[in-house]
Amino acid sequence: MNPKNRKIRVLIAKPGLDGHDRGAKVVARALRDAGMEVIYTGIRQTPEAIASAAVQEGVDFVGLSCLSGAHGHLFPEVVRLLKAHGAGKVRVFGGGIIPESDIPALKRAGIRKVFPPGSTTGDIVDWILNARLPVGEAHGT
């Protein structure tokens, strides 16, 4: 098998009602520049839409960005729906404006990693490269 044909696929999504996606786009481009395939779904996505897109797109990771403060509800909901769709192995991470004090609860809810304000795109790339499963395993191939 040709290793250059194996790519990490990441869905970057913005759940919730805030309409600012500059940060999410910067992350998407940084992951692309690190050689990943990034599916970007745009602003104001429901957790259902995000989970369903993640399944259809066969991604290894879902990155959630939320600036509206509703992460405490929205992020765990995405994790729950992924499990419900049989895609519980997909690794979810998050960023945006998330206070340090909220992080433990998010982790307990299955969000693998939270990048607080001040994190760099390099931090995210490094974490993904470390946290990845063998390619394709997230979807049982």
Binding site: K7, V38, Y40, T41, G42, Q45, A49, A53, Q56
Partner: peptide, 29 residues
């Protein structure tokens, strides 16, 4: 695919959001 990094940003789904949860529609980038 970017010839420099081998990565890609796939953004066509942005325009198709309203079909994301319809089980009769399957979108793949």
């Amino acid at each position: 695919t970017s010839p420099f990094s081998g990565g890609a940003v796939l953004g066509d789904r942005i325009r198709m959001g309203r079909h994301a949860v319809d089980p009769g529609v399957f979108i793949r980038s």
